[in-house]
Design a protein around this nucleic acid. Structure first.
Lengths: 196, 196
DNA sequence: CCTACCGATCGGTAGG
DNA sequence: CCTACCGATCGGTAGG
């Protein structure tokens, strides 16, 4: 990797971490430069301006594709096992890296969503191992299209975590556990009832 | 309402709109003052600093309680009707006011979630008409606790909308409609199968 | 509630 | 890739 490419990569990585932690306007070019171990003016040898950096970071780190990759690692002999494992993995990943979705929030609030389409165009099509696996277990499922199934799963996990943020650490018993939430999802997806 | 209270209210309302549109660091005290039709220095007669304004805005506008209020307006003779109407209302509201959740995103990214607990403490307990209604239809439902039900519903609607942001306007057919998503949820909740 | 102002920091440029 | 610097804007204060 040439020196130039390496520096560019350092800038993008530094910017990613800062945008995720402090948002776009909260991350200065000087801070981005410092983490990349250069001076602020040198950034302009690689990028035209701050927003161009954000656009490239967002394209490279769009969280949707990260979540689909996590799904691909799930395993299981039956549909119920596969789905449960997939949900566990999503939950674990989002809990250990809660800022995974921050980049998207920043894009939505500060950028008005204007880079989303370009990021989608750059990353599609995505070959999903998970969808192929669950497709092979079709007989165990209700008649639901695969993408709808994937949405339901990501949605359930996502909603669990968001909801936990919403209510803070208070009253977890009152509001239920994520296991209870997963149960609702499985009942909605599987052809036969799961053990509960 | 005294002049002083009215001014304070104008400042909070102005700050709310700006925080939601541009984030915390993207909203200057001068902008907040201009929308409230005073000068920037005058804000300090009512608030100590910018962050205190955010804390008060967040406490007053925590989106969780807004969503619960929307649920309370739902009607229906059967559990299926009530749930479908509730989901429709949530979808309609979030679609017509997509920035409803932005305040929460800003709190999460720029404030590191530090005001959440205070907002919860200030707003609980919340008397939910919706939960009482659905409680009365318990025989039509699987054995799911009401809060879990509410979470599933808000979660499903929320995940639908987030997912639509994720994928932008592209390939709606490929990824399914929110009707298909609702169907999965109803199957997971209702004791008997719904028409599909 | 205002005018006037503070030091600090911002994104970006000039010129080497 | 750097030093030095630009005008603009920031949160906040003094003083009336």
């Amino acid at each position: 990797m040439s020196r130039e490419v390496a520096t560019k990569k350092q800038i993008l990585e530094s910017a990613y971490r800062l945008f995720v932690e402090r948002g776009f306007r909260g991350s200065s070019m000087r801070d981005i430069a410092k983490n990349a171990e250069i001076k602020a003016a040198s950034i302009y040898n690689h990028f035209d301006n701050k927003e161009q950096i954000f656009a490239k970071v967002f394209k490279a780190k769009h969280p949707m594709f990260r979540l689909l990759s996590i799904l691909d690692t799930a395993t299981g002999e039956t549909a119920e096992e596969l789905l449960t494992d997939a949900i566990d993995r999503l939950n674990t990943e989002l809990r250990s890296e809660p800022e995974l979705l921050n980049l998207f929030f920043v894009e939505f609030v500060e950028m008005d969503g204007k880079h989303i389409q370009a990021a989608i165009d750059a990353n599609f099509p995505h070959d999903s191992t998970f969808m192929r696996k669950i497709f092979g277990m079709k007989s165990e499922l209700r008649d639901i299209r695969e993408p709808v199934l994937v949405r339901s799963m990501i949605g359930t996990v996502f909603a669990n975590i968001m909801f936990n943020w919403f209510i803070g650490d208070s009253k977890p018993k009152r509001w239920g556990s994520s296991t209870e939430m997963t149960d609702v999802l499985l009942w909605g997806i599987l052809r036969k009832s799961n053990s509960s």
